[in-house]
Computed example of a mutant assay.
Amino acid sequence: MTLSKPNLILTFTGDDLPSGHSAQQTVADSQIVRHSIRITEQLLDNLKSSSNQVTLQISRDCPSIEDIIGTDFDVRAVLKDGSDVIFTGFISTSFSWSVTNSGEQALNITMEDVGTRLFNRPFIETGHTLMDCTASSAVSAICSTVGVTVSSQCMTVTDRVFKVVDGGQSCRDILNKMLYELGYVYRFDNLGELRLFQINFPSFSKDLLPTLDGSNLKVTGNKAIGLSKSIRQYRHARVTYTELGTVQDFLVYRNTTGNDASHQYCNFSLSPGEHFDGTEIYSASDWAAALLDQFREPAMIEACNAASETATVGSNEILSVSDIHTTVVKGNDITYSIVPAGGPYLRIDAH
């Protein structure tokens, strides 16, 4: 692809830039080495989703080089041709730049698609969660977790997904396995938004395939067709699995913060405006600041098997909770909510 007016828009996501340096910078056409841009796009890799990338060189006089090399945070990048968006992604942390006796050389950078960077993050940090929804809903939940946008033109997949996800498992691993089993792959468009594509076509006709004969076969090394075969013998196979069960109407959470001789359960006072999230008490100002903090992770309270319920569920782990009913002894001036937070977790707010 030949770009007539290439330019690169960089957004530095961290706060470690030198004073006076803008978080958004533009690398102009004159600062991109001509004919250095290489765009690599691939939809499939062994019937699984692949990744796309762009490589280019930034000339030695570009002031953005200092910030690209110096930052420890992600750098979002949008490659344009004039005003048309060609590629959206992140600058790879692997690049080369050197100083020789002839002066500073161009910086060689690689732009990775959005998924290469963000899908390496885990869906949940610890514990387990249960996916019981359509494939499109699962894709949306995974993308929302890591900040990936699903394209409005993304196809809808109504196949049902029933899967237990372990803590620490990457979003890439979950998504690749789920879509592979259903016969789909994902890719990112030029805006960095995710789309799905179907790769298994049950109604595909073999009559649409071309026929190869002696007139269109190329002979290389005295061979036009090669065939190889490998025989493997399997004496036995072992299959293991874990059964999932469903129970209802049993205790999964009881707060005992501040309990004493006067009350065996949660027992403390909240001043006007204060909030309790199940782990700590916030003043009104601290709570307002916490809600605005985009890096704050809300307290996740893990549901557990109460001792009085072991006869029903034994010591098995809880993978998912829903349809929560609460029993609270409270004053008339206390407002509370206990809601599912995904998987075995609860989110609590009392004020």
Rank of each mutant, 00 (worst) to 15 (best):
G342K: 02
Q153P: 00
L194A: 06
V85G: 05
S64G: 03
T40W: 04
Q25T: 06
I324N: 05
Q153G: 12
A23Q: 12
A261Q: 14
G214S: 15
R187I: 02
D349K: 06
G245F: 06
T145G: 00
S308W: 01
P18Y: 07
T71K: 08
L44S: 05
S50M: 11
G115L: 02
K206S: 10
T71R: 08
A237Y: 08
H236K: 04
L194N: 00
N216C: 12
E104H: 12
M131S: 07
A23H: 09
R235N: 15
V219Q: 10
S269A: 13
M300C: 05
L244N: 03
E193T: 05
V139E: 00
L47H: 10
C266W: 02
S205N: 11
D213T: 14
T126R: 03
T326S: 13
K229I: 01
E112K: 10
R38I: 14
T211L: 14
I32L: 07
K229E: 11
S151C: 06
F95D: 10
R160M: 10
C143T: 06
E112W: 09
A311L: 08
L8E: 04
E104M: 14
R121Y: 00
I199E: 10
T13W: 12
V219D: 00
G147R: 06
V54G: 09
S228F: 09
P298H: 03
G226H: 07
T71I: 08
L56H: 04
G103D: 04
F188T: 05
N108K: 15
S102M: 10
H21V: 15
S22L: 14
K80N: 14
F12P: 08
D45R: 15
Y241S: 11
A350C: 08
C266H: 08
D189A: 01
I231C: 12
G115W: 01
I65N: 02
A261P: 00
Y180F: 12
V185I: 11
E181M: 09
L43Y: 06
F204P: 03
S285T: 13
T156C: 11
S64Q: 13
Q53H: 12
D277Y: 00
N222K: 15
P340Y: 02
C62L: 03
T145K: 15
Q42V: 10
T71D: 01
F276I: 10
R347D: 06
K206P: 00
Y282C: 04
L130P: 01
I58W: 07
Y180C: 11
T26G: 01
I174G: 03
C266E: 15
L194E: 04
M155N: 13
S98E: 13
T110N: 09
L118K: 10
F188W: 06
